[in-house]
């Protein structure tokens, strides 16, 4: 009885998802596999030429570098959020949420102003400090993409890790100290292992986000930093080869789903560890 009424309430949302999510994604997948008869020709093309393998490699490299640097930056900050006094914590959260709420285009534009040849950093290093003879190339290359991507994912990474660490019982760390471990050892031997499943889940999430991200590599990268997402855009809007573009989108989808299943597995493991 109750289920019947609930079914009716669920209808509009799921009709919307069916029509505007499942159908379009299905359309893309079908288009990547039928030409017009079933064929894997588009996917073969991705994996046979060196050009597209390079693009896959660069996308993966950007995603992995971003994830690693983001974790290194986020983990200590998330920990400090846990141990900080409430007033300090609110202040820290303001610094984290401001970029989180700021349009990604503005964040990229800000980085252009900071990093370009006549930007803030180069003006500082070359003009004022005379540390460099000529401006360093900091943007429209891999450096620029990584800086922009890390800036994009760190707030997300910190917030996810913060929610993981909040669940850890800090008394265990106190107990380790009480038993004679020094603070560093108590942190490394007790706190860190307890957060590892959460770290794995958060990193998978960041990796998936980085892999499919389009705006930052497109604005802060150069020609060398062409990612799968950029290539999808190129094939749909410039080359107009929708079949091949669909195969690239399909591949991105497969990578994402693989990453997400690892994410959910890590999350479940974390929940089991916390329940123990």
């Amino acid at each position: 009885m109750a289920g019947y009424g609930a079914g009716l309430l669920l209808l509009p949302g799921f009709a919307f998802i069916l029509l505007f999510f499942l159908v379009p994604v299905g359309l893309i997948l079908a288009q990547s596999l039928f030409d017009p008869a079933f064929s894997l020709r588009f996917y073969e093309r991705i994996f046979t030429g060196p050009d597209y393998l390079t693009v896959l490699w660069i996308s993966l490299k950007i995603a992995i570098l971003t994830t690693a640097i983001s974790l290194a930056a986020s983990y200590p900050v998330a920990y400090m959020l846990v141990v900080a006094r409430p007033a300090i914590r609110s202040l820290m959260l303001a610094f984290i949420l401001l970029p989180f709420w700021t349009n990604v285009l503005i964040r990229c534009y800000a980085w252009m102003l900071v990093l370009q040849t006549k930007g803030l950093v180069n003006t500082l290093l070359v003009g004022w400090l005379h540390a460099l003879a000529a401006p360093a190339p900091l943007v429209f290359n891999l450096t620029g993409v990584i800086i922009g991507m890390v800036h994009y994912v760190v707030p997300i990474n910190i917030l996810v890790l913060f929610s993981v660490m909040k669940a850890v019982d800090l008394r265990l760390v106190q107990a380790a100290k009480g038993l004679g471990a020094n603070p560093l050892r108590a942190f490394l031997a007790v706190f860190v292992p307890l957060t590892l499943p959460g770290v794995r889940a958060a990193s998978m999430l960041v990796l998936v986000i980085s892999l499919g991200f389009f705006v930052t590599p497109a604005l802060l990268g150069g020609r060398e930093e062409t990612t799968i997402a950029i290539l999808v855009n190129t094939y749909f809007t410039e080359v107009l080869d929708w079949g091949f573009g669909s195969a690239l989108a399909g591949l991105l989808l497969v990578f994402t789903l693989a990453g997400l299943s690892l994410y959910f597995a890590a999350q479940r493991e974390g929940a089991e560890l916390a329940a123990r």
């Binding site: 949302g13 999510f21 379009p24 893309i28 989808l253």
Partner: peptide
Amino acid sequence: LLRALVMAPLLVPVIVIAVGLYEL
């Protein structure tokens, strides 16, 4: 499954949704 389906549009890269809707 229904809960996962509601969240699915947030988990798929936006560029994939964008080209799918573009074509539709």
